[in-house]
């Protein structure tokens, strides 16, 4: 009886352990990003939406989404992305590592830090929080970094 109980307990323990060890998401879950304006020719301001099960998680996803838009997808609006299609397909590993190692965080400024606008904090029916954040991406610095890493070429892009 005791053996059975121990085996059952171990089984339950393993089940719980396996289910709770979740690898953190590397790339942003959200792709809802709107480019709002260019700031002094060296940065772009975005309204980025992120998803998460708490405010902090959703905020991080939104920041990541904005960086992802600046580099790759461009987002809605008039901003262009720093990488073209060919560069994206060549740099898949770099992009993954860029987000995994948290390098992306150096190029983003959250203009709403410490303040959440309730109109931009929406809980979805699945229980996730969808958070809108106004973000400034230091596009010039990001571009220089990408040139340095030989992901893009110096002369092609104006910004």
């Amino acid at each position: 009886m005791n053996k059975k109980l121990i085996i059952f307990s171990i089984f339950i323990y393993l089940l719980i352990s396996c289910s709770s060890v979740k690898e953190p998401r590397v790339l942003p879950k959200s792709n809802e990003v709107e480019c709002l304006e260019s700031i002094q020719g060296n940065s772009y301001k975005y309204l980025a939406w992120g998803f998460g099960y708490n405010n902090a998680e959703a905020e991080e996803d939104a920041l990541k989404a904005a960086v992802y838009a600046a580099m790759i997808s461009g987002g809605a609006g008039n901003c262009t992305s720093l990488l073209d299609t060919e560069e994206i397909s060549k740099s898949k590993d770099f992009i993954y590592e860029f987000f995994k190692k948290g390098v992306w965080y150096e190029f983003v400024i959250n203009t709403n830090k410490g303040y959440i606008n309730p109109n931009y904090r929406l809980k979805t029916e699945s229980g996730e929080i969808k958070l809108g954040v106004e973000v400034i991406i230091k596009t010039k610095e990001l571009r220089e970094y990408l040139i340095q890493q030989k992901i893009i070429q110096k002369t092609i892009y104006g910004l």
């Binding site: 309730p118 109109n119 904090r121 929406l122 809980k123 979805t124 029916e125 969808k130």
Partner: peptide, 8 residues
């Protein structure tokens, strides 16, 4: 107190 939500 209210929380803003979004439906499907």
């Amino acid at each position: 107190i209210y929380e803003n939500k979004i439906d499907n």
